[in-house]
Design a protein around this nucleic acid. Structure first.
Lengths: 210, 210
DNA sequence: CAAATTACTGAGTGAACGGTCAATGAAAAA
DNA sequence: TTTTTCATTGACCGTTCACTCAGTAATTTG
């Protein structure tokens, strides 16, 4: 099947083959966690979904723990790369940058049920798994710090209605709330539906002149 | 041990004995999930921590699934009873009632690392377990609705700076953010530290006269 | 008191799980 | 070409898990 196809296709280069396999397995892992939850996600099921043998899954990732960790890393880097990228292209005004950060949080690559679902699953286990904590802690912290800095900068330009730290917490909080809405809300819940209230709150905290 | 003590103490009444045991087991389950995560929480470990035999744990709860469900229910009812209670004792003004609801979210019985940790663990598995979804969905929905209604009422009295629904989402979002802060933040993070920013946001959305 | 119900124990069971391993074919290096 | 390395399979193994069960003691019912 896909195994054979890939063999005929790209197997000349072993490095590519290996990377392709790893991506395949990580995708299958995300599927499993999304549909079954972490506690029901087994190597056998991941292997089945990816079309590889169980032995091969272990061969590429050494063991289940590192597979899960690398899956989390993958999700994390995707998000990190995305908002760093968007931020780099944004204007200089703190408000624009904050807006860019908010929009990045609702980018299609991140803001979809499958990914958010897995995100929350890891999040729920992270307190008892130091590795998970380390992995998402780093990104989370960086994101939080950036939001905080922007709120401070914005406060400096024209003092908002909230202490900068409170503003930052509020914004991060409502973003998280919209992520939850995506998971629980109606199937029609879209990027725009999520974005509007966040911007409304931002405008409330930092009313813009004109 | 505690088994013997309890036998000598209250075993005259079998109903009490059974309830006492169930509470013991649920406490042990919460401990396990807090310290090990759901995926490492086993009947054997729960039994060990509660001081009962594994067979007895199964005897009282039939199987692991219902034990976990009832643990979640316990947490849920605790929270539900708490905020309903606080709300019943609050004044009539929507602002007072909203404040009561916020304070209830940071009540010591709920707002502590052990409980919040377990809460998030279930939350992370709830997407793939319909039972969990049903159990916390009901409470969550009720809480959300109440917050929304109060925001609408408050808006009617003196229009706030946000659409009522956005205000509700913002408030729920920042509460959640403070729950996360308790988990990740410094050990010294206290009820008051969590409360202040939420009230600050509330005052920003609904500035009070006087 | 006798009978019936309930609480409890601990050994035992089958299934599922994560991980190993020898064997095989194919690619890369020598 | 020969040798070495890598990718892959599938059978296999030891462990752990949730759950059962026969047996026992204590409690409630009649």
């Amino acid at each position: 099947m896909s195994t054979v196809t890939q063999k005929n296709f790209a197997s000349r280069n072993r490095r590519r083959q290996s990377e392709f396999r790893k991506q395949q397995v990580i995708d299958a892992t995300i599927d499993c966690i999304d549909q079954l939850g972490i506690s029901q996600t087994t190597l056998a099921r991941i292997a089945e979904r990816s079309g590889l043998s169980q032995g091969n899954v272990v061969f590429h990732f050494k063991n289940k723990d590192t597979l899960l960790e690398q899956t989390l890393m993958h999700l994390n880097e995707e998000h990190l790369a995305n908002w760093r990228d968007v931020l780099a292209q944004a204007g200089n005004h703190p408000r624009d940058r904050l807006l860019a950060l908010i929009e990045a949080s609702f980018a299609p690559a991140v803001f979809n049920r499958r990914k958010i679902s897995v995100w929350f699953a890891f999040w729920g286990e992270s307190r008892s798994k130091a590795a998970y904590m380390r992995i998402c802690g780093a990104n989370d912290q960086a994101f939080s710090n950036t939001v905080s800095e922007l709120c401070i900068a914005l406060h400096g330009l024209s003092p908002g209605r909230l202490a900068p730290q409170t503003a930052a917490t509020s914004i991060e909080g409502i973003i998280d709330a919209q992520w939850q809405n995506l998971l629980l809300g109606p199937p029609g819940f879209k990027r725009g539906d999520a974005l509007a209230p966040v911007i409304e709150l931002l405008d409330c905290i930092y009313p813009h002149a004109g």
